[in-house]
């Protein structure tokens, strides 16, 4: 079972559950942030997008201390797969489960548009359905999506294969023009050193049916659903 965490201000929680249940046929349940434990049959955790706690102080800063996050940390420390999208990515960075931080977009504007991202690493549990070099078209919608890692950390991430997705042109080339928010090295998604926690700013749950404008998000959510099914 996939646990989709709900904070006050989360707004992609139901979209995420829809993507997993209705599109991918996976079992997914909403779990309120005040719970101090994840349901016992939890095999994967998703931290969805939105504006947890109104983005007060910093995006994700308050949510990191919600009761459920202690349980999510224990789950991740035990090797359980955890996926954070947009605000969920910010929460995972704030809580120290992922390296780096997300700051205000380079151009200050809130951006809502489809972008292209290149898969840098194809591996379970997040990108097993794609190959390195594949280009996915997935929307972003954020004001604070500029990924920051200090130079030493960035080298570590590059060498450790922790950069999973990069903003790119339609042909897969990585350019400054394809970088929507000023993220360092065009980073759109990173994983933890151990590989079981990943965060990304694009919203795969908003690209799961042709009527959404595209269905490339299935590549990522489907990989995650596969990993969760095989863990049962």
């Amino acid at each position: 079972m996939l646990a989709v965490v709900q904070f006050p201000g989360s707004n992609d929680d139901r979209d995420m559950r829809f993507a997993f249940k209705a599109v991918l046929g996976a079992e997914a349940r909403l779990v309120f942030h005040k719970a101090s434990e994840l349901p016992p049959d939890t095999r994967g955790v998703v931290i969805p997008g939105g504006f947890s706690y109104g983005d007060y102080l910093r995006c994700g800063a308050m949510a990191q201390y919600s009761p459920i996050m202690a349980a999510v940390k224990r789950f991740a420390d035990a090797g359980g797969p955890v996926l954070g999208v947009c605000n969920g990515f910010q929460v995972l960075c704030e809580s120290g489960l992922l390296p780096g931080a997300l700051v205000r977009n380079h151009g200050l504007h809130f951006i809502c548009e489809f972008v292209h991202v290149r898969v840098e690493r194809a591996a379970a549990p997040f990108t097993s359905r794609v190959a390195a070099g594949d280009v996915l078209r997935i929307p972003i919608k954020h004001g604070e999506g500029c990924y920051y890692a200090e130079p030493g950390l960035l080298d570590e991430l590059e060498q450790g294969g922790q950069i999973v997705l990069r903003y790119c042109e339609v042909d897969g080339s990585v350019s400054a023009a394809a970088n929507p928010n000023g993220s360092v090295a065009n980073v759109a998604g990173v994983r933890s050193a151990r590989g079981n926690v990943m965060g990304l700013m694009p919203h795969p749950e908003h690209a799961v049916e042709p009527a959404f404008g595209g269905s490339d998000g299935i590549a990522i959510l489907g990989s995650f659903a596969d990993a969760v099914r095989s863990a049962v």
């Binding site: 205000r104 977009n105 380079h106 920051y148 200090e150």
Partner: peptide
């Protein structure tokens, strides 16, 4: 913000 983190609000 640390000195090496870009501050777009300051620039604006």
């Amino acid at each position: 913000l640390k000195p090496d983190v870009l501050d777009p609000q300051g620039k604006a």
